[in-house]
Simulated scan of single mutants.
Amino acid sequence: MSCFEAYDPAFGRFVMGNAPLKQLATGFDWVEGPVWFGDAGCLLFSDIPDNKILRYTPGVGVSTFRAPSHYANGHSRDRQGRLVSCEHGLRRVTRTELDGRITVIADSYQGKPLNSPNDVVVKSDGSIWFTDPHYGIMSNYEGFAAKQELPCNVYRVDLDGSIEAVLTDFNCPNGLAFSPDEATLYVADTRRMFHSDPQHIRSFSMASGRPKGGAVFHTITPGCSDGIRCDTDGNLWSSAGDGVHCIAADGHLMGKILVPETVSNLCFGGRAKHQLFITATTSLYAITLNRVGAQTP
């Protein structure tokens, strides 16, 4: 039985019928934040409630990379290949230096603690962009219940360490990704906890260097968009309630990869960045595509 659904004939060129969806590991609580380390030949990802960052090495399996992880969620790599992480528990964004030291990138804004940084990307100019919804402080499941002191914003941290709230009109910004040419920023809004706000992906023009616009780009159904990544042709791949959805640059749905668990996040990796690694509820999955991921390094 095929795990693909095509809504645009072009999607047939993106997938290969004999490439199976593989469950690489299972038995986790809630997995998130995959990031590929090609130089180390491994994938890092978070099990948030279990307070761990895990390492998957092809041919070897899963091991613990860091515990406790301070309830880490999303991860990325900067232009020097260093790990950049969002930590719910300590309400901060950190960078793991090449010698293992931890550097705090951001933990407050205008004198108030961040909520619970969720996902992060690094732009080619070295600036760090992250979302800060309230999910990690609304209960003790993915962090520590605490008072919310800031709106749920999208932030940019410049190379000099200055932090700016660049997007302030979201309910709960979550996943984010730049298009391959960095002309567009995509941000998923997954609504406030215990509310019925709209859930969708918005797109922003980066022509001026700062995000402008913010029209609704696409609405995922079923479920919602959480983690998102672009391929080198500018298609956006998003988590969804029934798997992974591929969305063209003009916003129309091209096709789906059906996954038997609710998908939280994804990233491209593998030998040629042509494998899609998928975190989904209790399991880690992977599938080989005829696409290449846009993220660097």
Score class of each variant (00 low, 15 high):
residue 155 Y to W: 03
residue 92 R to S: 02
residue 144 F to L: 08
residue 24 L to Y: 07
residue 167 L to C: 08
residue 292 V to W: 08
residue 118 N to V: 06
residue 130 F to N: 01
residue 270 G to Y: 10
residue 209 G to H: 13
residue 184 T to H: 12
residue 172 C to S: 15
residue 163 I to V: 15
residue 189 D to M: 05
residue 31 V to P: 11
residue 107 D to W: 01
residue 80 Q to P: 01
residue 279 T to L: 07
residue 193 M to H: 13
residue 133 P to S: 09
residue 292 V to G: 03
residue 96 T to G: 00
residue 283 S to N: 06
residue 174 N to I: 09
residue 169 D to K: 14
residue 48 I to M: 08
residue 187 V to H: 05
residue 87 E to F: 03
residue 21 L to G: 10
residue 167 L to E: 01
residue 195 H to I: 00
residue 21 L to E: 05
residue 21 L to I: 09
residue 246 C to M: 14
residue 88 H to P: 07
residue 117 P to E: 01
residue 134 H to M: 10
residue 112 K to I: 01
residue 12 G to W: 03
residue 181 D to H: 10
residue 88 H to R: 05
residue 199 Q to S: 13
residue 13 R to H: 14
residue 54 L to S: 09
residue 2 S to H: 11
residue 7 Y to S: 13
residue 107 D to M: 03
residue 256 K to L: 08
residue 248 A to C: 12
residue 32 E to T: 12
residue 249 A to H: 13
residue 43 L to C: 08
residue 87 E to R: 11
residue 229 R to A: 14
residue 85 S to Y: 02
residue 116 S to V: 05
residue 201 I to H: 04
residue 136 G to F: 01
residue 189 D to T: 08
residue 275 Q to F: 13
residue 114 L to P: 03
residue 62 V to D: 03
residue 16 M to T: 12
residue 173 P to S: 10
residue 206 M to W: 02
residue 226 D to A: 11
residue 197 D to A: 09
residue 181 D to C: 10
residue 218 H to S: 10
residue 249 A to N: 13
residue 226 D to S: 10
residue 179 S to Y: 08
residue 56 Y to Q: 05
residue 77 R to C: 04
residue 179 S to I: 03
residue 282 T to M: 02
residue 21 L to N: 06
residue 242 D to S: 14
residue 154 V to R: 02
residue 77 R to Y: 01
residue 101 R to D: 05
residue 104 V to M: 02
residue 218 H to V: 13
residue 220 I to V: 15
residue 98 L to D: 11
residue 35 V to H: 07
residue 224 C to Q: 14
residue 245 H to A: 15
residue 276 L to W: 05
residue 227 G to K: 05
residue 72 A to P: 00
residue 201 I to W: 02
residue 88 H to A: 07
residue 18 N to T: 15
residue 195 H to R: 15
residue 130 F to W: 04
residue 253 L to W: 03
residue 12 G to F: 03
residue 291 R to D: 04
residue 125 D to F: 04
residue 235 N to R: 15
residue 124 S to L: 01
residue 152 C to S: 14
residue 172 C to I: 00
residue 156 R to M: 08
residue 59 G to W: 04
residue 8 D to R: 10
residue 84 V to L: 09
residue 161 G to L: 00
residue 156 R to N: 07
residue 110 Q to G: 08
residue 122 V to E: 00
residue 48 I to C: 06
residue 209 G to E: 10
residue 22 K to R: 15
residue 181 D to T: 13
residue 231 D to Q: 12
residue 201 I to F: 06
residue 25 A to G: 11
residue 185 L to T: 01
residue 74 G to R: 09
residue 295 Q to D: 15
residue 145 A to F: 01
residue 75 H to Q: 15
residue 72 A to W: 02
residue 199 Q to C: 14
residue 278 I to N: 06
residue 6 A to Y: 11
residue 264 S to W: 12
residue 279 T to C: 13
residue 206 M to T: 11
residue 261 E to D: 11
residue 280 A to M: 06
residue 89 G to Q: 04
residue 87 E to V: 04
residue 57 T to Y: 04
residue 259 V to N: 02
residue 91 R to L: 00
residue 166 V to K: 07
residue 75 H to V: 02
residue 53 I to W: 02
residue 147 K to I: 08
residue 183 A to F: 01
residue 3 C to K: 11
residue 184 T to K: 14
residue 126 G to V: 03
residue 190 T to L: 05
residue 226 D to P: 06
residue 129 W to L: 00
residue 283 S to R: 06
residue 193 M to W: 11
residue 296 T to I: 10
residue 203 S to L: 02
residue 29 D to C: 13
